[in-house]
């Protein structure tokens, strides 16, 4: 129970941090429950524990990280990303499985191991390392249908397509697929504007459906 307890708490912290970064504030209990893979009671208990510890403050039904909570959350998030990157980019695991696996491993691994692993991944001469930012999901824009409301989770090689950032195609943004031709050229609606994307660009944008 003790171990389970810590990992749920860490997952909660991580969820609050990513949700804060994505929405800029207003992290509710529902949002955290949707993000953490555990039963409702465990998450509620975890959140209550975090508030009691002072890692998290509860204000008007919104959860905020205290400085200590944030340090822990950042460390857990970093572990998650390094592990996920290692699993999917170096071991060739599929991105969804890599993310799930990383969710389990991140609670047991030491900071030192993560540092070494991170350096290992970034060692030059290791072939091209793709950006593995955030939680990789295997569904790219091409896997959705016209009319779908989706949220961007990750964009590969964003540096090559700076205009995507400027048009608002960034992780956390909710977009609608407006048009998809049989050749996979698509039009998405972002911030009120319709943006046409070539298939090779659309395939670098990953998203998940908005429930």
């Amino acid at each position: 129970m003790g171990y389970m307890n810590t990992s749920v708490r860490e997952d909660c912290l991580e969820a609050i941090l990513t949700l804060t970064q994505a929405n800029g504030g207003s992290v509710t209990a529902e949002g955290i429950m949707a993000a953490v893979d555990a039963n409702q009671a465990a998450v509620e208990a975890g959140l209550a524990g975090l508030v009691a510890e002072g890692a998290v403050r509860l204000e008007n039904g919104e959860y905020l990280l205290s400085p200590e909570g944030k340090t822990v959350a950042e460390s857990v998030l970093r572990k998650h990303r390094v592990l996920e990157c290692f699993l999917c980019e170096m071991l060739g695991m599929d991105t969804g499985a890599a993310s799930k696996e990383a969710c389990v491993l991140e609670h047991g691994i030491s900071d030192d191991t993560i540092d070494r692993l991170s350096r290992y991944i970034e060692r030059p001469g290791h072939g091209q390392r793709r950006h593995c930012a955030g939680r990789c999901r295997e569904r790219s824009l091409l896997d959705f249908a016209e009319g779908d409301l989706i949220e961007i989770t990750m964009i590969r090689c964003l540096g090559r397509n700076r205009r995507l950032i400027d048009l608002g195609l960034i992780p956390g943004e909710q977009i609608v697929i407006r048009r998809k031709l049989h050749n996979n050229a698509i039009v998405v609606r972002v911030k009120g504007a319709d943006i046409a994307l070539s298939p090779e660009i659309a395939s670098t944008v990953f998203a998940e459906p908005v429930r």
């Binding site: 970093r78 970034e122 593995c132 964003l158 400027d166 960034i170």
Partner: peptide, 13 residues
């Protein structure tokens, strides 16, 4: 390396 997100992307976001 800390955020696994490039600076231009953070600034843009």
């Amino acid at each position: 390396s800390l955020n696994h997100m490039a600076a231009p992307q953070i600034i843009g976001a």
